[in-house]
Design a protein around this nucleic acid. Structure first.
Length: 485
RNA sequence: GGUCCCUUCGUCUAUCGGUUAGGACAUCUGGUUUUCAACCAGGGAAGAGGGGUUCGACUCCCCUAGGGACUGCCA
């Protein structure tokens, strides 16, 4: 049997970081088993679905390298098929037409809530009220589930699933284990609305079946839904998929992830926070899945190692500090030109003068090993992007006293005549200067760094000189050198 | 209210009845050092609480507490 997994987002917004992880697991499992990974857009709610959201989600998936093996399927295109199955379920006795209106159902919920509030206010309820509330809160059972009860003529109906009266339904899940629920605790859910359109519960099952999905990996907010979907498989006599319900990702305080925890949208991780997709994959993979003590796991290794048995049952918290450290690892490995291009797409880089952009391009091999993400890369590159005259403050300013100015002035001629402006040549010249002047590198290094970088983070001072280029380095030194001393 | 799920260092996790409870990130101390980063050496840090079962429990069972999910003609 060929493994088929899928990712089925509803297009009501951006790609959520939790969804991205779900997609990653599904994608990895398909890759690991030599199967197929499919994408289905669950756009049966026309009110809330937008094309912009579809584009954003696909864009996020593509950035993460989690494209489907076939073009994405739009669920809305399959409404006829869904309706066909709904009617087939009725024909087979697994479902029935029900004329109870949405308003009547809402009235029930309102009444239940009113009673709950009454209880909260009074501390208790009369026996009659308590019984009424318990009844209202029980899974809905329509009077028309009785097949002999005649439907009112001309009234619009929905199609409801007929849950068995007795017995339990058992779900075996790779993450949640074996869990049973009484059918009595499951409602006669609606599969086809009164306007003839399918609901989510029906559409998911029909599409998963028709797409040949063998393994469903999804958030555990869907776990209880499994008990409502399985009866559809049973009603149609279809084989049920293998389920893995993974825990949701939480914020740093352990609460459900929301905006106040930082980024929830995948495109923010790319555009604002400056992370690399391969780092996101590695970090997300380790969030809720493990393979012994392994932390840094390449895509190739992940595909070999990934399995459902490594999934964790408890929700994990997002930790940007750890993400930074993982990203840092991949930054150092990344191609220089690629990083330069990514950096150039950032707003803070786009408007820099061409000469400075080129300076950064040349410095990339040294910059990339020092930064945890593209934002930090900018901080590490600040010594290259500072414009003259460089204003010195704090410790940098303290370094530059009269003695230091004189030293700089003395050094200038030594650098002036260099045939080649390379790290090695500069290094040799600096050493020679120190030897001649009878001083150690410690006497000139800090001063040079001060006037060259103004105290900004920077690599070895010789490298700083080389990366700045002859003219810029010279000018920065000359700005603070005092030939008169 | 009901049903279901979760709980090991600050965080991600290993452990699948017998370990000095391991690793990573973070943190602290020392070293290196021309800033920052890196690097080297070392340290601190955990089984939510309470009952069982067992020769023995982080591991199995129950209760409590805390967290979460579902309970829509949303997905």
């Amino acid at each position: 049997m060929t493994v088929v997994t899928r990712f089925a987002p509803s297009p009501t917004g951006y790609l959520h970081i939790g969804g991205a992880r779900t997609a990653l697991f599904s994608w990895l499992y398909a890759r690991a088993k030599g199967g197929k990974f499919l994408i289905r857009i669950e756009d049966t709610d026309k009110e809330r679905s937008t094309q912009a959201a579809v584009d954003a989600i696909l864009d996020g998936l593509n950035w993460l390298g989690l494209g489907g093996d076939e073009p994405p399927l739009l669920q809305s295109t399959r409404a006829d098929r869904h309706a066909e199955i709904a009617h087939e379920l009725v024909k087979r006795g697994s479902a029935y037409h029900c004329p109870v209106t949405a308003e009547e159902l809402q009235a029930r919920r309102d009444e239940a809530e009113a009673l709950q509030q009454k209880k909260a206010a009074n501390g208790s309820l009369s026996d009659a009220d308590a019984a009424r509330m318990a009844d209202l809160l029980r899974p809905f059972r329509s009077p028309w589930r009785d097949p002999t009860r005649p439907l009112p003529a001309g009234a619009p109906t929905v199609v409801r699933l007929r849950m068995p009266d007795i017995g339990d339904l058992t779900v075996t899940d790779n993450v949640q284990g074996t869990v049973s629920r009484a059918y009595a605790d499951i409602d006669d859910l609606i599969v086809l609305r009164s306007d003839g359109t399918p609901t989510y519960m029906l559409a998911v099952v029909v599409d998963d079946h028709d797409m040949g999905v063998t393994h469903v990996i999804r958030g555990d907010d869907h776990f209880l839904n499994t008990f409502r979907q399985l009866p559809i498989y049973h009603g149609m006599g279809w084989p049920q998929p293998d389920y893995s319900h993974i825990p949701l990702i939480h914020g740093s305080d352990g609460k459900k992830l929301s905006k106040r925890h930082g980024a929830t949208a995948v495109d923010e991780y790319r555009d604002v926070l400056g992370y690399l997709p391969e780092a996101m994959r590695n970090y997300l993979l380790r969030l809720g899945w493990s393979h012994g003590d392994d932390e840094i796991i390449s895509d190739e290794q992940a595909i070999v190692w990934f399995g459902l048995e490594g999934l964790n049952k408890a929700p994990a918290r997002l930790d940007f500090v750890k993400l930074d450290s993982v990203n840092k690892h991949y930054m150092a490995l990344a191609d220089d030109q690629r990083l330069f291009e990514l950096w150039m797409q950032r707003p803070e880089a786009r408007h820099l003068p061409e000469v400075i952009q080129q300076r950064i391009r040349a410095a990339m091999p040294h910059l990339k090993t020092r930064a945890a993400n593209l934002v930090k890369l900018g901080e590490q590159a600040r010594f290259l992007t500072n414009l003259r005259p460089i204003h010195l403050t704090g410790k940098a300013a303290d370094q530059v006293n009269a003695e230091a100015r004189a030293r700089l002035a003395a050094l200038l001629p030594h650098l002036e005549g260099l045939a080649e402006w390379s790290e090695a040549v500069i290094q040799a010249q600096l050493s020679q200067f120190c030897a001649q002047s009878g001083i150690s590198m410690g006497k000139i290094g800090p001063v040079l760094r001060a006037v060259l970088t103004a105290g900004a983070p920077s690599p070895d001072i010789t490298l700083v000189l080389a990366l700045l280029g002859r003219n810029e380095a010279f000018a920065r030194i000359a700005d603070h050198a005092d030939a008169g001393a």
